[in-house]
Design a protein around this nucleic acid. Structure first.
Lengths: 203, 203
DNA sequence: GTCTATATCCGGATAGAC
DNA sequence: GTCTATCCGGATATAGAC
């Protein structure tokens, strides 16, 4: 699927992609207002003007970051669509736990929500869409999971979705201070509330 | 409060205090890196140099903000110490819901955790202490509450504390995007998990 | 305590050479 | 595509007058 035209001859694996990866890491660590073109450029060994070439404005960069994350998310959801509800939820948690493992990062969506009114409007719009999509997905999975008998939680799926999403986001941020174990504790607790014995669905 | 001009000349209730209140509001709305001396000064109708007089550096201002919040918290905890566990937890949630009501703000502690590595070290230290204190308090209340039979949740109090804290923080941030109702849904769900019928402890 | 003025630096952004 | 050079504005911070 890779066109023959764009084979990178050894040491030139697409600067644009590297920018996105670096920026993504910085976003997860420091927040949107906690990194700059200069930071990205320095890490990549280029000048900030080069970054501007690929992303004219920081708003554009922010939107690209969110949309990239959003796309991956959607692909993953489609991929996991057939699985049991518990497995889908397990994957959802695992995705977030990975942020933690990669050096105390937090979810890009979460940190952008926290500083929502301090980021460009275009970015706000993208974040809003992503958050809504993820929330809808959670509601869906929880609804189906309970209908099929896989899950046995109480209360409306809508409320449960908010608790699951908020717990994951919040625990991720909290884990930086209280330690990574807190995230695992929170996860274990969620499984109890969902009526799932975790050992069974360990991925 | 009223549309009539505020006579700031007549009533002079400590500029320092007004700075803290304004900065606190901006912090809750935009995050630590989302406001400046200039913003504070403009809102108060003074120059930024005046703000520097009261708080020499932004780190100092940040620490003052956190410590002020921390102190209030501690006083409130002492105050509520005698109450039933459900009432204490209810108050805890209410404190946070108030942020929401005051114009889609989030918890200062929460937003600082989100951008933790992008704030001055002194501020990080204060935030860490506050978060630890609140967490310890939650564990205590939950432990005592279950021991007394008031609460009937499953799992270790430690894990439940993380879920409660994370849910509140996360739901607050999420409510900006998904709507304030989400916070209430999450709260209701928490009460279910705690085995408390919410109507009884409505404050 | 607050002001004016200023120093310094940084961040976002653009123009044009290579 | 990346560089050098540069502009602009904003942010932190300080000095000294009032």
């Amino acid at each position: 699927m890779v066109s023959s035209r764009e084979r990178k001859v050894a040491s030139k694996p697409d600067t644009r992609e590297e920018i996105l990866r670096t920026a993504s890491r910085l976003l997860q660590l420091n927040g949107f207002n906690g990194f700059s073109y200069g930071h990205i450029a320095k890490e990549l060994g280029v000048k900030s003007a080069a970054v501007h070439y690929h992303f004219p404005s920081k708003a554009a960069l922010g939107v690209a970051l969110v949309d990239r994350f959003r796309t991956r998310y959607r692909l993953w959801m489609e991929d996991a669509a057939g699985l049991p509800a518990a497995d889908q939820l397990s994957g959802y948690v695992a995705i977030h736990r990975r942020f933690l493992e990669r050096g105390a990062r937090v979810c890009p969506g979460g940190v952008l929500q926290a500083e929502l009114y301090a980021v460009p409007e275009e970015v706000q719009a993208s974040v809003t869409q992503m958050a809504q999509e993820v929330h809808d997905w959670l509601v869906e999975v929880l609804t189906a999971g309970r209908a099929s008998g896989e899950l046995t939680f109480e209360g409306p799926p809508e409320a449960m979705a908010t608790v699951v999403g908020a717990t994951v986001q919040g625990a991720l941020q909290m884990a930086r201070i209280l330690g990574a174990e807190q995230f695992d504790l929170a996860e274990a607790q969620l499984w109890r509330f969902l009526g799932v014995s975790r050992e069974l669905t360990k991925s």
